[in-house]
Design a protein around this nucleic acid. Structure first.
Lengths: 268, 268
DNA sequence: ATCACACTTCGGTGAGCACCGAATCGTCCG
DNA sequence: CGGACGATTCGGTGCTCACCGAAGTGTGAT
């Protein structure tokens, strides 16, 4: 149709204002393809997934994690930073990198929930253990995911702290429960209306609690040392104190509290 | 590092179970890259954006909309359907296609909100008018977007029907207001806790109302003929009755009710 | 000063893929 | 039946890009 259309001018450069002819009539449009292009590469996604632990990684740590050469990692980081998905901070000879913000993290989680599944071979016993631990309990940027996260959400729902109507919401009882735990500030006066979001868990294909309440709960659990986050991974470990607390406050069953008891990836 | 790693085995085929050696130790992982790959092409995104009007299109309509050859459109539709983003229905020699579901639509909107902006030239006067109309009021799968959508959201907030704490929520007054309008069924008894979501508007870079309440409001407005949707586009036109209603119930200003008065894409 | 280290730049390579046109297959209509 | 039409298949083309290694740059430690 359009004779100007050479083959495959799909994304590439910003097209360079030509001749200055009709430059007055332009419109801005969100370039979804450009954003998706950033995430259309397994290595870049692996980097983003690593950063979903909410932490700050160096370039070489990410290169090793993603199993690519440092030079390749540099290229990917350049793209992700200039695309606005990652924030960087250079100190000395190190390049520190983290997710740009909660929006980014949430978008990644949403995509992970909608994405098709893929079979991935497990090579070593160490990797199998790592998988098992991830499956049991991990961070999801600022809240708790994995079997533990789902169990918490389920228990809170059963006990009437959360209610399901057109999405999950915090009930008045739930607000009181949070206050009793000593989580007041995050939840404003009209507590029953506080922001509750859910997030589709990619290991269990079940929804778990996120949003402001999920974040507050996670922070609280870490502060009280109910949970300990392993450095440089997203793995959470439940402490003895944590087991006591989760049994006490939510009557969580042992399956949710011990990683070894977590059943192997139930496929729906 | 890995000698098995030839160059660029990034996405491609499902790798074909080899030799049947170590097939027991596999794990399922969401393949975000594969999903993003689907959206990493301008033409495919254009198709998805067209389908965001919530309607059903034929293959050739989409080919014309996206300005590609029919054969190219077929290829794209095959990918999008088999990737689960689109649902198809074949009748006779026609292929009817629509978005797979609300999840898909929501994900697209979220991506559009996070995506970078791109300058797009406007070629004809007709296109300029089309843009203006889209900018003023359009559907966003199942709710109202554009300047009108933002104005509605703002007005509802100002009048205490919506409140902002950790995201937007419907107040008790808001629930009563909906009931008075005659929108009861969508909103369950504990109405003030009904599902409210916001959606970042890509024309105005402002949030507007979505979720169950947003969808109910849109359906109501169409039922009462406050709004009329132009066929084969996402454009909404405000009728006289609509203007009266929106002035009455929300005191919307004229700028929000007449497309010509909408200011040209304010950039923050 | 010297060396180790974290990262970057650059050239080259190979795979992937968006596109079209021409030919083909079915379906619907006159 | 025959022709128009919607959609598909297929071969070919050219661009894009993920990857690496080797060489280079700057920082920090000895």
């Amino acid at each position: 149709m359009d004779p100007l259309r050479t083959h495959h001018q799909n994304i590439s450069q910003p097209a360079m204002s030509r001749g200055g002819a009709d430059q007055e009539s332009v419109v801005e449009t969100p370039d979804v393809a450009a954003l998706a292009q950033l995430l259309a590469d397994r290595t870049r996604v692996a980097i983003c997934m690593a950063l979903l632990d909410g932490g700050t990684w160096t370039a070489s740590e990410l290169a090793e994690f993603a199993a690519v050469a440092p030079s390749t990692a540099t290229e990917h980081l350049n793209l992700l930073v200039s695309g606005g998905l990652l924030a960087e901070q250079r100190r000395g000879r190190r390049r520190y990198v983290r997710l740009a913000g909660p929006d980014t993290a949430e978008t990644l989680e949403i995509l992970a929930g909608l994405a098709p599944y893929r079979q991935v071979p497990v090579r070593s016993l160490a990797e199998a253990n790592h998988r098992r631990a991830l499956h049991h309990a991990r961070t999801c940027y600022d809240h708790i995911a994995g079997a533990l996260g789902v169990a918490i959400t389920d228990a809170m729902t059963e006990r009437g702290l959360l209610a399901r109507d057109y999405g999950l919401v915090l009930t008045c009882a739930g607000a009181r429960w949070l206050t009793a735990l000593g989580i007041p500030d995050t939840v404003p006066s009209a507590a029953h209306r506080a922001h509750v979001r859910t997030c589709l868990d990619w290991t269990v294909r079940r929804r778990h609690l996120s949003g402001a309440v999920g974040a507050a709960l996670y922070r609280h659990a870490v502060d009280r040392e109910w949970l300990v986050k392993a450095p440089a991974t997203r793995i959470l470990t439940v402490t003895d104190a944590g087991r006591a607390a989760f049994r006490d406050h939510l009557a969580l069953p042992d399956e949710a509290l011990f990683p070894s008891l977590t059943p192997a990836a139930p496929r729906p």
